[in-house]
Design a protein around this nucleic acid. Structure first.
Lengths: 231, 231
DNA sequence: AAGTTGCGTCAATGGTGTTGACATAAGGAC
DNA sequence: GTCCTTATGTCAACACCATTGACGCAACTT
């Protein structure tokens, strides 16, 4: 990791050769756009530099390394998804909406999500999200420890599904296609004798190609409801 | 993707310069070992070639590209984890053991798991695993469609958690440390007024640094049990 | 107007996957 | 046992990648 290249406060605003003035925010914006527009390979320091109209190495004046940049971009996504989220109704609906927001936010930026869903950004937007999530669990009547444990189980399940589906979406087209078609091709051709269970559900197997997020979320929330009633 | 470089049946067994005779199996073995022993950056075609004592490009005679190799390695891991698994007791215990097997198998190979948990290997070991998993759901009394849907929710939740935790484990040490310490450092220093919920559970927040897999699994299985009774 | 120094630029290092041409030895045919 | 074919290992090259240290300009401070 580079040391001392990233000042906290920036005083001199020197434009690049092409005239743009770099900003931490501008870079994050551009990275987000770039990762979205072009394919899975789009996000590299060199391309980012080209898109910003600056030398690639200029980015190291703003972020220690690509990991640092990634966390900043990830936090931006969290901010987007949680923007204006202030759950008012019952806690379960709040959790459901939070789950949907996180999931769809990550689905909108699959490439970043696949790389960052398991990270702790340690930044402002993530702080707010955890604050809200734990607040919802507390509203469900859970004690301090149970609230934290259940929030962890909840958010990790949501993030896990988001990461899985995002990684699938971020796959190069021919690979994504190959994985998806497995359920209508390879799995359909297995010998019945060796795979009796698969033979029986043959016509339902294509369901495996779709996201199971909604089903898993329903199961998880119903379990939390039971726990809340029992506790 | 290279075309026609990977014959199905191999007749001529020509040794490399260092004397070893390459095999699809040998390569997968070596990749698995390499990814485990050394750091997160260990698995590259060049290192693999060096470890096998052959030219890196020789691998392209056995696998179309690194993605093809990755899927082969992933399927090997599935095979390892499901080896000798033949659930006999009640379906819920069977699912629980399957979840533990998958999770710990992936935890043993975090680098590969992080890259492949969301893939469909379309290979023998995966076929068997799905066969067993859907069989367990059927044993729980679910109809064809419900069995497939619930199996998808189940396995994706398990894989999601496995992927999350594996990716965390596979992180470079200083990054993993940074993410982990967030809960005992950054999250402990937030101002109480702005984050009242976090302030209240301050002493329980370090729980967030641990895996939530067991808790999430308990919740999921209890929900499936309720569904089975209701349906 | 002069002096510091922040920050954009350049060039270089050592990594990556992948490919096409090449050479050689393995195995089949006789 | 010898010849032929060709599978397969090797080599060199291409086009990328992140990162760093030296350099020098220009934007602020004084």
């Amino acid at each position: 990791m580079a040391t001392g290249r990233v000042p906290v406060e920036r005083r001199r605003r020197r434009p690049t050769k092409t005239g743009t003035v770099l900003t931490e925010e501008l870079i994050v914006d551009c990275a987000l756009r770039l990762a979205g527009e072009h394919g899975a390979e789009a996000l590299s320091v060199r391309r980012l530099g080209a898109a910003l109209g600056c030398d690639p190495s200029a980015l190291y004046r703003y972020f220690h390394d690509t990991d640092d940049l990634l966390l900043a971009v990830a936090d931006r996504i969290i901010g987007e998804t949680m923007h204006d989220f202030a759950p008012e109704g019952d806690w379960l609906s709040g959790l459901r909406e939070m789950a949907h927001r996180v999931y769809s936010g990550y689905s909108r930026h699959p490439r970043i999500a696949a790389m960052a869903a398991y990270r702790v950004t340690r930044r402002a937007h993530e702080f707010r999200a955890v604050e809200i999530g734990i607040g919802l669990m507390r509203r469900g009547g859970f004690g301090k420890e149970a609230a934290v444990r259940h929030y962890a189980a909840f958010i990790d399940t949501v993030l896990g599904h988001a990461a899985l589906d995002a990684a699938h979406l971020a796959l190069a087209p021919e690979r994504r296609g190959g994985d998806t078609r497995a359920w209508t091709e390879a799995y359909q051709d297995l010998p019945d004798a060796a795979y009796p269970q698969l033979a029986e559900v043959r016509h339902e197997l294509p369901l495996m190609a779709h996201s199971s997020f909604e089903n898993a979320l329903d199961l998880l929330l119903s379990a939390l409801e039971s726990q809340a009633r029992a506790g």
